[in-house]
Nucleic acid binder design. Structure first.
Length: 473
RNA sequence: GGCCCCAUCGUCUAGUGGCUAGGACACCACGCUUUCAAUGUGGGAACCCGGGUUCGAUUCCCGGUGGGGCUACCA
Protein backbone atom coordinates (compact mmCIF):
# COMPACT_ATOMS: atom_id res chain seq x y z
CA UNK A 1 0.00 0.00 0.00
CA UNK A 2 1.51 3.26 -1.11
CA UNK A 3 1.50 6.21 1.17
CA UNK A 4 -1.36 8.61 0.54
CA UNK A 5 -0.35 12.02 -0.74
CA UNK A 6 -2.76 14.81 -1.46
CA UNK A 7 -2.20 18.38 -2.50
CA UNK A 8 -3.94 21.69 -2.58
CA UNK A 9 -2.96 23.58 -5.70
CA UNK A 10 -4.31 27.09 -5.89
CA UNK A 11 -3.29 29.56 -8.52
CA UNK A 12 -2.16 32.86 -7.03
CA UNK A 13 -4.68 34.99 -8.86
CA UNK A 14 -6.28 36.35 -5.72
CA UNK A 15 -6.88 35.75 -2.06
CA UNK A 16 -7.66 32.31 -0.71
CA UNK A 17 -11.38 31.93 -1.04
CA UNK A 18 -13.88 29.89 0.83
CA UNK A 19 -14.19 27.23 -1.87
CA UNK A 20 -10.45 26.81 -1.91
CA UNK A 21 -10.48 26.47 1.85
CA UNK A 22 -12.92 23.58 1.63
CA UNK A 23 -10.91 21.87 -1.10
CA UNK A 24 -7.79 22.28 1.01
CA UNK A 25 -9.65 20.97 4.04
CA UNK A 26 -10.81 17.77 2.36
CA UNK A 27 -7.32 17.15 1.01
CA UNK A 28 -5.92 17.76 4.45
CA UNK A 29 -8.47 15.56 6.22
CA UNK A 30 -7.91 12.62 3.96
CA UNK A 31 -4.13 12.84 4.13
CA UNK A 32 -4.15 13.12 7.92
CA UNK A 33 -6.64 10.32 8.30
CA UNK A 34 -4.54 8.01 6.14
CA UNK A 35 -1.36 9.17 7.84
CA UNK A 36 -0.20 10.40 4.50
CA UNK A 37 1.09 13.76 3.41
CA UNK A 38 -0.65 16.97 2.48
CA UNK A 39 1.26 19.19 0.08
CA UNK A 40 0.87 22.68 -1.31
CA UNK A 41 1.57 23.59 -4.91
CA UNK A 42 1.40 27.06 -6.39
CA UNK A 43 0.05 27.00 -9.94
CA UNK A 44 1.44 30.22 -11.32
CA UNK A 45 1.83 29.34 -14.97
CA UNK A 46 -0.33 32.23 -16.14
CA UNK A 47 1.92 35.25 -15.73
CA UNK A 48 -0.80 37.60 -16.83
CA UNK A 49 -3.09 36.86 -13.94
CA UNK A 50 -0.62 36.85 -11.08
CA UNK A 51 -1.69 38.97 -8.13
CA UNK A 52 1.06 40.29 -5.86
CA UNK A 53 0.69 39.00 -2.34
CA UNK A 54 -1.64 36.19 -3.30
CA UNK A 55 0.79 33.43 -2.38
CA UNK A 56 1.34 34.97 1.04
CA UNK A 57 -2.35 35.39 1.54
CA UNK A 58 -3.03 31.78 0.70
CA UNK A 59 -0.32 30.42 2.96
CA UNK A 60 -1.22 32.74 5.78
CA UNK A 61 -4.87 31.80 5.72
CA UNK A 62 -4.15 28.09 5.53
CA UNK A 63 -1.96 28.52 8.57
CA UNK A 64 -4.67 30.49 10.36
CA UNK A 65 -7.09 27.66 9.65
CA UNK A 66 -4.62 25.12 10.95
CA UNK A 67 -4.28 23.25 7.66
CA UNK A 68 -0.59 22.67 7.84
CA UNK A 69 1.20 21.21 4.85
CA UNK A 70 4.07 18.82 5.09
CA UNK A 71 6.71 20.19 2.76
CA UNK A 72 7.85 23.45 1.28
CA UNK A 73 5.35 24.54 -1.36
CA UNK A 74 6.16 23.59 -4.94
CA UNK A 75 6.05 26.49 -7.36
CA UNK A 76 5.39 25.67 -10.99
CA UNK A 77 7.13 28.69 -12.49
CA UNK A 78 10.37 27.33 -11.03
CA UNK A 79 10.04 24.01 -12.80
CA UNK A 80 9.85 25.01 -16.45
CA UNK A 81 12.60 22.63 -17.64
CA UNK A 82 10.63 19.74 -16.22
CA UNK A 83 7.53 20.49 -18.26
CA UNK A 84 9.64 21.23 -21.31
CA UNK A 85 11.25 17.82 -21.04
CA UNK A 86 7.96 15.97 -20.96
CA UNK A 87 6.54 18.11 -23.74
CA UNK A 88 9.49 17.07 -25.89
CA UNK A 89 8.82 13.47 -24.98
CA UNK A 90 5.22 13.79 -26.12
CA UNK A 91 6.34 15.46 -29.33
CA UNK A 92 8.81 12.66 -29.99
CA UNK A 93 6.29 9.93 -29.34
CA UNK A 94 3.75 11.54 -31.61
CA UNK A 95 1.29 12.33 -28.81
CA UNK A 96 1.70 16.03 -29.38
CA UNK A 97 2.38 18.40 -32.22
CA UNK A 98 3.41 21.96 -32.80
CA UNK A 99 0.74 24.37 -33.86
CA UNK A 100 1.42 27.73 -35.46
CA UNK A 101 -2.13 28.89 -35.81
CA UNK A 102 -2.43 32.51 -34.74
CA UNK A 103 -4.74 33.79 -32.07
CA UNK A 104 -6.64 35.62 -34.82
CA UNK A 105 -7.23 32.45 -36.80
CA UNK A 106 -8.43 30.61 -33.71
CA UNK A 107 -10.69 33.49 -32.84
CA UNK A 108 -12.35 33.57 -36.23
CA UNK A 109 -12.59 29.78 -36.22
CA UNK A 110 -14.46 29.98 -32.95
CA UNK A 111 -16.77 32.70 -34.18
CA UNK A 112 -17.51 30.68 -37.25
CA UNK A 113 -18.27 27.55 -35.28
CA UNK A 114 -20.46 29.45 -32.90
CA UNK A 115 -22.44 31.00 -35.75
CA UNK A 116 -22.97 27.61 -37.33
CA UNK A 117 -23.81 26.12 -33.94
CA UNK A 118 -21.02 23.60 -34.28
CA UNK A 119 -19.01 22.26 -31.36
CA UNK A 120 -16.30 24.80 -30.65
CA UNK A 121 -12.91 23.22 -30.85
CA UNK A 122 -9.61 23.31 -32.69
CA UNK A 123 -10.01 22.09 -36.24
CA UNK A 124 -6.72 20.19 -36.30
CA UNK A 125 -5.14 22.08 -39.15
CA UNK A 126 -1.56 21.90 -37.83
CA UNK A 127 -2.05 18.35 -36.69
CA UNK A 128 -2.71 17.36 -40.28
CA UNK A 129 0.53 18.97 -41.38
CA UNK A 130 3.11 16.28 -41.92
CA UNK A 131 6.84 16.60 -42.20
CA UNK A 132 9.22 18.97 -40.46
CA UNK A 133 8.02 21.03 -37.56
CA UNK A 134 8.08 24.74 -38.19
CA UNK A 135 11.27 26.64 -37.55
CA UNK A 136 11.79 28.10 -34.12
CA UNK A 137 11.39 31.57 -35.59
CA UNK A 138 7.67 31.04 -36.00
CA UNK A 139 5.80 31.26 -32.70
CA UNK A 140 4.15 27.99 -31.92
CA UNK A 141 2.32 26.17 -29.18
CA UNK A 142 2.36 22.47 -28.45
CA UNK A 143 -0.95 20.68 -28.65
CA UNK A 144 -1.99 17.30 -27.36
CA UNK A 145 -2.99 14.93 -30.16
CA UNK A 146 -6.22 13.51 -28.80
CA UNK A 147 -7.20 10.07 -29.96
CA UNK A 148 -10.09 10.59 -32.34
CA UNK A 149 -11.96 7.40 -31.67
CA UNK A 150 -13.06 5.43 -28.68
CA UNK A 151 -14.41 5.97 -25.23
CA UNK A 152 -12.45 7.14 -22.24
CA UNK A 153 -13.59 5.76 -18.93
CA UNK A 154 -12.97 8.00 -15.95
CA UNK A 155 -13.41 6.72 -12.43
CA UNK A 156 -14.27 9.26 -9.80
CA UNK A 157 -14.44 8.47 -6.10
CA UNK A 158 -17.57 10.53 -5.71
CA UNK A 159 -19.40 10.10 -9.00
CA UNK A 160 -18.36 6.66 -10.08
CA UNK A 161 -17.51 5.91 -13.69
CA UNK A 162 -18.01 8.61 -16.30
CA UNK A 163 -17.67 7.86 -20.02
CA UNK A 164 -16.40 10.38 -22.54
CA UNK A 165 -16.41 10.08 -26.29
CA UNK A 166 -12.89 10.81 -27.53
CA UNK A 167 -14.25 12.43 -30.66
CA UNK A 168 -15.67 15.28 -28.58
CA UNK A 169 -12.35 16.15 -26.94
CA UNK A 170 -10.32 19.13 -28.06
CA UNK A 171 -6.61 19.09 -28.91
CA UNK A 172 -5.64 20.87 -25.74
CA UNK A 173 -2.74 23.28 -25.71
CA UNK A 174 0.01 21.89 -23.49
CA UNK A 175 2.69 24.53 -23.87
CA UNK A 176 1.97 28.16 -24.63
CA UNK A 177 3.89 30.47 -26.94
CA UNK A 178 5.69 31.92 -23.97
CA UNK A 179 7.05 28.50 -23.12
CA UNK A 180 4.92 28.09 -20.00
CA UNK A 181 2.86 24.94 -19.68
CA UNK A 182 -0.90 25.14 -19.36
CA UNK A 183 -2.69 23.74 -16.34
CA UNK A 184 -3.26 20.43 -18.05
CA UNK A 185 0.37 19.57 -18.64
CA UNK A 186 1.73 21.14 -15.49
CA UNK A 187 -0.70 19.52 -13.10
CA UNK A 188 -0.33 16.07 -14.65
CA UNK A 189 3.45 16.28 -14.62
CA UNK A 190 3.56 17.62 -11.08
CA UNK A 191 1.03 15.23 -9.65
CA UNK A 192 3.16 12.44 -11.04
CA UNK A 193 6.47 13.91 -9.93
CA UNK A 194 5.12 14.68 -6.48
CA UNK A 195 3.70 11.17 -6.22
CA UNK A 196 0.20 12.43 -5.56
CA UNK A 197 -2.10 9.47 -4.97
CA UNK A 198 -5.42 11.33 -4.72
CA UNK A 199 -6.37 14.33 -6.77
CA UNK A 200 -9.15 16.02 -4.83
CA UNK A 201 -10.41 19.14 -6.57
CA UNK A 202 -13.51 21.08 -7.54
CA UNK A 203 -16.12 19.76 -9.92
CA UNK A 204 -15.23 22.41 -12.47
CA UNK A 205 -12.37 20.10 -13.43
CA UNK A 206 -14.57 17.16 -14.25
CA UNK A 207 -14.68 17.88 -18.00
CA UNK A 208 -10.90 17.81 -18.22
CA UNK A 209 -10.50 14.51 -16.43
CA UNK A 210 -10.44 12.43 -19.66
CA UNK A 211 -7.76 14.70 -21.11
CA UNK A 212 -5.68 14.23 -18.02
CA UNK A 213 -6.14 10.46 -18.03
CA UNK A 214 -5.04 10.39 -21.65
CA UNK A 215 -2.00 12.48 -20.80
CA UNK A 216 -0.97 10.06 -18.08
CA UNK A 217 -1.29 7.24 -20.57
CA UNK A 218 0.67 9.08 -23.24
CA UNK A 219 3.46 9.67 -20.76
CA UNK A 220 3.38 6.05 -19.70
CA UNK A 221 2.18 6.77 -16.19
CA UNK A 222 -0.57 5.37 -14.00
CA UNK A 223 -3.17 8.02 -13.18
CA UNK A 224 -3.92 8.84 -9.55
CA UNK A 225 -7.33 8.42 -7.97
CA UNK A 226 -9.66 11.33 -8.66
CA UNK A 227 -12.34 12.89 -6.50
CA UNK A 228 -14.30 15.85 -7.83
CA UNK A 229 -16.01 17.81 -5.10
CA UNK A 230 -19.42 19.41 -5.52
CA UNK A 231 -19.31 23.15 -6.09
CA UNK A 232 -20.00 25.78 -3.46
CA UNK A 233 -22.84 27.96 -4.66
CA UNK A 234 -24.17 31.50 -4.42
CA UNK A 235 -27.74 31.87 -3.14
CA UNK A 236 -28.84 31.90 -6.80
CA UNK A 237 -27.10 28.52 -7.23
CA UNK A 238 -24.36 29.75 -9.54
CA UNK A 239 -20.76 28.92 -8.72
CA UNK A 240 -19.70 30.77 -5.58
CA UNK A 241 -18.20 34.05 -6.56
CA UNK A 242 -17.37 37.50 -5.34
CA UNK A 243 -20.45 39.12 -6.71
CA UNK A 244 -22.92 37.95 -4.09
CA UNK A 245 -20.88 38.48 -0.97
CA UNK A 246 -17.68 37.79 0.82
CA UNK A 247 -15.67 34.90 -0.55
CA UNK A 248 -12.19 35.63 0.76
CA UNK A 249 -11.20 33.73 3.89
CA UNK A 250 -9.61 37.00 4.96
CA UNK A 251 -12.95 38.72 5.15
CA UNK A 252 -14.36 36.09 7.47
CA UNK A 253 -11.32 36.24 9.65
CA UNK A 254 -11.62 40.00 9.91
CA UNK A 255 -15.33 39.86 10.64
CA UNK A 256 -14.53 37.77 13.67
CA UNK A 257 -15.22 34.21 12.67
CA UNK A 258 -13.15 31.56 14.40
CA UNK A 259 -11.15 29.20 12.23
CA UNK A 260 -12.69 26.21 14.01
CA UNK A 261 -16.17 27.46 13.16
CA UNK A 262 -15.39 28.25 9.55
CA UNK A 263 -13.81 24.86 9.03
CA UNK A 264 -16.66 23.09 10.79
CA UNK A 265 -19.18 24.89 8.65
CA UNK A 266 -17.38 24.42 5.35
CA UNK A 267 -16.76 20.74 6.09
CA UNK A 268 -20.51 20.21 6.25
CA UNK A 269 -21.02 21.78 2.84
CA UNK A 270 -20.88 18.64 0.77
CA UNK A 271 -20.06 16.12 3.43
CA UNK A 272 -21.93 14.72 6.41
CA UNK A 273 -21.14 12.08 8.99
CA UNK A 274 -24.45 10.23 8.67
CA UNK A 275 -25.22 11.04 12.29
CA UNK A 276 -26.92 14.04 13.80
CA UNK A 277 -23.71 15.56 15.04
CA UNK A 278 -23.27 19.18 13.95
CA UNK A 279 -20.21 20.34 15.83
CA UNK A 280 -16.83 18.88 14.91
CA UNK A 281 -13.32 19.58 15.98
CA UNK A 282 -10.65 19.25 13.31
CA UNK A 283 -9.62 15.99 14.94
CA UNK A 284 -13.21 14.76 14.72
CA UNK A 285 -13.29 15.59 11.05
CA UNK A 286 -10.04 13.77 10.42
CA UNK A 287 -11.43 10.66 12.04
CA UNK A 288 -14.85 10.75 10.43
CA UNK A 289 -14.26 12.05 6.92
CA UNK A 290 -14.94 9.70 4.06
CA UNK A 291 -15.50 10.07 0.33
CA UNK A 292 -18.52 7.76 0.51
CA UNK A 293 -20.30 10.47 2.44
CA UNK A 294 -19.41 13.33 0.13
CA UNK A 295 -22.43 14.61 -1.80
CA UNK A 296 -22.74 14.93 -5.53
CA UNK A 297 -24.75 18.12 -5.72
CA UNK A 298 -23.59 21.66 -5.09
CA UNK A 299 -24.20 23.38 -1.77
CA UNK A 300 -25.34 26.94 -1.23
CA UNK A 301 -23.10 28.84 1.14
CA UNK A 302 -25.50 29.76 3.91
CA UNK A 303 -24.38 32.62 6.13
CA UNK A 304 -27.06 32.08 8.77
CA UNK A 305 -25.80 28.67 9.64
CA UNK A 306 -22.21 29.87 9.69
CA UNK A 307 -23.26 32.54 12.17
CA UNK A 308 -24.95 29.94 14.31
CA UNK A 309 -21.91 27.67 14.38
CA UNK A 310 -19.62 30.58 15.07
CA UNK A 311 -21.89 31.69 17.90
CA UNK A 312 -21.78 28.18 19.26
CA UNK A 313 -17.98 28.20 19.33
CA UNK A 314 -17.94 31.66 20.87
CA UNK A 315 -20.33 30.59 23.62
CA UNK A 316 -18.32 27.49 24.40
CA UNK A 317 -14.98 29.24 24.54
CA UNK A 318 -13.48 29.64 28.02
CA UNK A 319 -14.10 33.29 28.86
CA UNK A 320 -10.44 34.18 29.20
CA UNK A 321 -9.84 32.91 25.68
CA UNK A 322 -12.73 34.94 24.40
CA UNK A 323 -11.28 37.99 26.14
CA UNK A 324 -7.93 37.40 24.51
CA UNK A 325 -9.62 37.34 21.11
CA UNK A 326 -11.83 40.31 21.91
CA UNK A 327 -9.04 42.54 23.14
CA UNK A 328 -7.59 43.46 19.74
CA UNK A 329 -11.09 43.99 18.38
CA UNK A 330 -11.95 46.47 21.12
CA UNK A 331 -8.56 48.03 20.71
CA UNK A 332 -9.10 48.55 17.00
CA UNK A 333 -12.50 50.09 17.70
CA UNK A 334 -10.78 52.64 19.90
CA UNK A 335 -12.66 51.66 23.04
CA UNK A 336 -9.64 50.82 25.18
CA UNK A 337 -7.40 53.32 26.91
CA UNK A 338 -4.00 52.41 28.32
CA UNK A 339 -5.58 52.82 31.74
CA UNK A 340 -8.48 50.43 31.09
CA UNK A 341 -8.15 47.63 33.65
CA UNK A 342 -7.86 44.14 32.17
CA UNK A 343 -10.32 42.96 34.77
CA UNK A 344 -12.91 45.43 33.53
CA UNK A 345 -12.54 44.24 29.92
CA UNK A 346 -12.92 40.68 31.12
CA UNK A 347 -16.20 41.42 32.87
CA UNK A 348 -17.59 43.40 29.95
CA UNK A 349 -16.83 40.68 27.43
CA UNK A 350 -18.24 37.98 29.68
CA UNK A 351 -21.57 39.78 29.69
CA UNK A 352 -21.91 39.52 25.92
CA UNK A 353 -20.61 36.00 25.45
CA UNK A 354 -24.02 34.41 24.97
CA UNK A 355 -25.07 37.13 22.56
CA UNK A 356 -22.19 37.13 20.10
CA UNK A 357 -22.22 35.65 16.67
CA UNK A 358 -19.09 37.37 15.45
CA UNK A 359 -16.30 39.10 17.33
CA UNK A 360 -16.73 42.06 15.03
CA UNK A 361 -20.13 42.90 16.45
CA UNK A 362 -18.72 43.30 19.94
CA UNK A 363 -17.72 47.01 19.93
CA UNK A 364 -21.16 48.51 19.31
CA UNK A 365 -22.67 46.11 21.85
CA UNK A 366 -20.39 47.14 24.69
CA UNK A 367 -19.64 50.71 23.85
CA UNK A 368 -21.78 52.02 26.71
CA UNK A 369 -19.37 50.53 29.20
CA UNK A 370 -16.59 52.70 27.88
CA UNK A 371 -18.39 55.88 26.88
CA UNK A 372 -21.40 57.68 28.25
CA UNK A 373 -24.26 56.45 26.06
CA UNK A 374 -26.57 58.83 24.24
CA UNK A 375 -29.90 58.80 26.00
CA UNK A 376 -33.34 59.00 24.48
CA UNK A 377 -35.72 60.16 27.28
CA UNK A 378 -38.68 58.75 25.39
CA UNK A 379 -37.18 55.29 25.76
CA UNK A 380 -37.01 55.40 29.56
CA UNK A 381 -40.60 54.96 30.76
CA UNK A 382 -42.01 51.45 30.72
CA UNK A 383 -45.07 51.18 28.47
CA UNK A 384 -47.69 53.60 29.85
CA UNK A 385 -45.56 54.69 32.80
CA UNK A 386 -45.57 58.48 33.23
CA UNK A 387 -42.34 60.44 33.02
CA UNK A 388 -42.85 61.62 36.56
CA UNK A 389 -43.18 58.09 37.95
CA UNK A 390 -40.19 56.98 35.96
CA UNK A 391 -38.15 59.83 37.32
CA UNK A 392 -39.17 59.08 40.89
CA UNK A 393 -38.11 55.48 40.45
CA UNK A 394 -34.73 56.35 39.00
CA UNK A 395 -33.95 58.85 41.72
CA UNK A 396 -35.01 56.47 44.47
CA UNK A 397 -32.77 53.74 43.10
CA UNK A 398 -29.93 56.20 42.67
CA UNK A 399 -30.03 57.11 46.33
CA UNK A 400 -30.42 53.50 47.33
CA UNK A 401 -27.25 52.67 45.39
CA UNK A 402 -25.44 55.64 46.83
CA UNK A 403 -26.09 54.35 50.28
CA UNK A 404 -24.67 50.93 49.57
CA UNK A 405 -21.07 50.22 50.59
CA UNK A 406 -18.82 49.26 47.69
CA UNK A 407 -18.33 45.72 48.92
CA UNK A 408 -22.03 45.10 48.54
CA UNK A 409 -22.06 46.27 44.93
CA UNK A 410 -22.49 42.77 43.53
CA UNK A 411 -25.19 41.32 41.32
CA UNK A 412 -26.74 39.34 44.16
CA UNK A 413 -26.72 42.08 46.78
CA UNK A 414 -27.99 44.66 44.32
CA UNK A 415 -30.82 42.42 43.27
CA UNK A 416 -31.83 41.82 46.88
CA UNK A 417 -31.77 45.52 47.72
CA UNK A 418 -33.65 46.68 44.67
CA UNK A 419 -36.28 43.97 44.98
CA UNK A 420 -36.76 44.91 48.61
CA UNK A 421 -37.39 48.49 47.62
CA UNK A 422 -39.78 47.39 44.89
CA UNK A 423 -41.74 45.37 47.36
CA UNK A 424 -41.95 48.19 49.88
CA UNK A 425 -43.11 50.67 47.29
CA UNK A 426 -45.23 48.24 45.33
CA UNK A 427 -43.32 48.80 42.10
CA UNK A 428 -43.70 46.35 39.25
CA UNK A 429 -40.80 44.67 37.50
CA UNK A 430 -41.31 46.49 34.23
CA UNK A 431 -41.79 49.91 35.80
CA UNK A 432 -38.56 49.56 37.74
CA UNK A 433 -36.15 47.36 35.89
CA UNK A 434 -36.75 48.64 32.38
CA UNK A 435 -35.99 52.31 33.13
CA UNK A 436 -33.09 51.26 35.31
CA UNK A 437 -31.52 49.16 32.59
CA UNK A 438 -32.12 51.74 29.86
CA UNK A 439 -30.68 54.51 32.02
CA UNK A 440 -27.53 52.47 32.51
CA UNK A 441 -27.04 51.20 28.97
CA UNK A 442 -28.90 53.61 26.76
CA UNK A 443 -30.11 50.58 24.84
CA UNK A 444 -33.38 48.80 24.27
CA UNK A 445 -31.52 45.49 24.30
CA UNK A 446 -28.74 44.65 26.71
CA UNK A 447 -27.81 42.37 29.60
CA UNK A 448 -29.84 42.86 32.75
CA UNK A 449 -29.32 45.79 35.16
CA UNK A 450 -27.93 43.63 37.94
CA UNK A 451 -25.27 42.35 35.56
CA UNK A 452 -24.40 45.79 34.27
CA UNK A 453 -24.35 47.55 37.62
CA UNK A 454 -21.35 45.87 39.26
CA UNK A 455 -19.30 46.20 36.09
CA UNK A 456 -20.08 49.87 35.72
CA UNK A 457 -19.35 50.61 39.37
CA UNK A 458 -21.22 52.75 41.86
CA UNK A 459 -20.05 56.19 40.82
CA UNK A 460 -20.77 55.80 37.15
CA UNK A 461 -24.03 54.01 37.76
CA UNK A 462 -25.40 56.64 40.08
CA UNK A 463 -24.34 59.41 37.72
CA UNK A 464 -26.15 57.75 34.85
CA UNK A 465 -29.32 57.30 36.83
CA UNK A 466 -29.33 60.93 37.87
CA UNK A 467 -28.65 62.09 34.38
CA UNK A 468 -31.50 59.95 33.08
CA UNK A 469 -33.82 61.35 35.73
CA UNK A 470 -32.80 64.87 34.74
CA UNK A 471 -33.62 64.17 31.12
CA UNK A 472 -37.20 63.42 32.12
CA UNK A 473 -38.02 66.84 33.55
C1' G B 1 -24.81 25.14 -29.79
C1' G B 2 -21.61 20.73 -27.95
C1' C B 3 -19.82 17.73 -23.77
C1' C B 4 -20.44 16.54 -18.65
C1' C B 5 -22.56 16.68 -13.66
C1' C B 6 -26.70 17.22 -10.48
C1' A B 7 -32.10 17.12 -8.54
C1' U B 8 -35.64 15.48 -0.56
C1' C B 9 -38.46 21.37 3.62
C1' G B 10 -36.26 28.53 2.06
C1' U B 11 -30.90 26.59 3.12
C1' C B 12 -27.39 22.40 4.73
C1' U B 13 -28.78 17.41 4.79
C1' A B 14 -30.44 11.82 6.59
C1' G B 15 -32.70 8.19 3.66
C1' U B 16 -30.53 3.36 -0.36
C1' G B 17 -38.26 -0.65 -2.40
C1' G B 18 -42.80 -0.76 2.48
C1' C B 19 -41.00 5.20 7.42
C1' U B 20 -46.55 9.52 10.48
C1' A B 21 -39.95 11.07 5.10
C1' G B 22 -35.57 12.23 10.43
C1' G B 23 -32.04 16.22 12.06
C1' A B 24 -29.72 21.25 11.83
C1' C B 25 -30.01 26.60 10.44
C1' A B 26 -33.69 30.18 9.52
C1' C B 27 -38.95 31.30 10.67
C1' C B 28 -43.41 31.27 14.12
C1' A B 29 -45.66 30.35 19.05
C1' C B 30 -45.18 29.37 24.12
C1' G B 31 -42.10 28.84 28.85
C1' C B 32 -38.14 31.32 31.57
C1' U B 33 -37.61 36.93 31.82
C1' U B 34 -37.27 44.18 32.69
C1' U B 35 -35.27 44.05 27.28
C1' C B 36 -31.96 41.33 23.99
C1' A B 37 -29.49 36.86 23.84
C1' A B 38 -28.76 31.95 25.69
C1' U B 39 -31.89 27.88 27.02
C1' G B 40 -36.49 24.48 27.13
C1' U B 41 -41.07 22.89 24.63
C1' G B 42 -44.11 22.91 20.45
C1' G B 43 -45.36 24.33 15.23
C1' G B 44 -45.50 25.33 9.87
C1' A B 45 -42.32 23.70 5.87
C1' A B 46 -39.78 18.92 1.06
C1' C B 47 -39.37 13.83 -2.20
C1' C B 48 -39.30 18.38 -10.15
C1' C B 49 -42.62 15.94 -14.02
C1' G B 50 -44.05 11.67 -17.14
C1' G B 51 -43.51 6.75 -18.33
C1' G B 52 -41.93 2.03 -17.01
C1' U B 53 -40.02 -2.34 -13.39
C1' U B 54 -42.53 -4.11 -8.98
C1' C B 55 -47.69 -6.47 -4.85
C1' G B 56 -45.47 -1.69 -3.58
C1' A B 57 -41.55 3.49 -5.55
C1' U B 58 -38.52 9.44 -2.63
C1' U B 59 -35.47 5.13 -3.50
C1' C B 60 -34.23 1.12 -9.55
C1' C B 61 -34.52 2.10 -15.29
C1' C B 62 -35.80 5.40 -19.44
C1' G B 63 -37.40 10.13 -21.17
C1' G B 64 -38.44 15.07 -20.21
C1' U B 65 -37.88 19.55 -17.36
C1' G B 66 -34.97 22.51 -14.34
C1' G B 67 -30.27 24.06 -12.32
C1' G B 68 -25.06 24.07 -12.72
C1' G B 69 -20.09 23.35 -14.73
C1' C B 70 -16.82 23.16 -18.87
C1' U B 71 -16.26 24.58 -23.86
C1' A B 72 -9.10 30.38 -23.53
C1' C B 73 -1.97 30.36 -25.62
C1' C B 74 -7.11 31.06 -17.30
C1' A B 75 -6.67 28.01 -13.64
Amino acid sequence: MTNVRTRFSPSPTGKLHIGGLRTALYNFLYARQQQGEFLLRIEDTDRTRLVPGAVDNIIQNLRWAGLTFDQEPVTQSERLPLYRRYAEQLLASGHAYRCTCTAERLESLRRDQEAKKLPMRYDGRCRALTGTPPAAAVPSVIRFAMPQLGTIACDDLIRGRILFNAATLDDQILVKTDGFPTYHLASVVDDHEMKITHVIRGEEWLPSMPKHILLYQALGWTPPTFAHLPLLLNPDRSKLSKRTGDVAVDEYREAGYLPEALLNFVALLGWNPGTEQEVFSLQDLIEKFSFERVNKSGAVFNRDKLDWINGWYLRHLPTDQLVALAHPVLQAAGLLKPSTPQDFVQRVVALEQSRLKRLGELPPLVQYFFDEPALDPAMLPWRSQTAADCKTTLLAIASLLEGLPNDRFTANELQIEVKKMMEERKWGNGETLWPLRVALSGRRASPGPFEILPVLGKTTAVARLKRAAQSLS
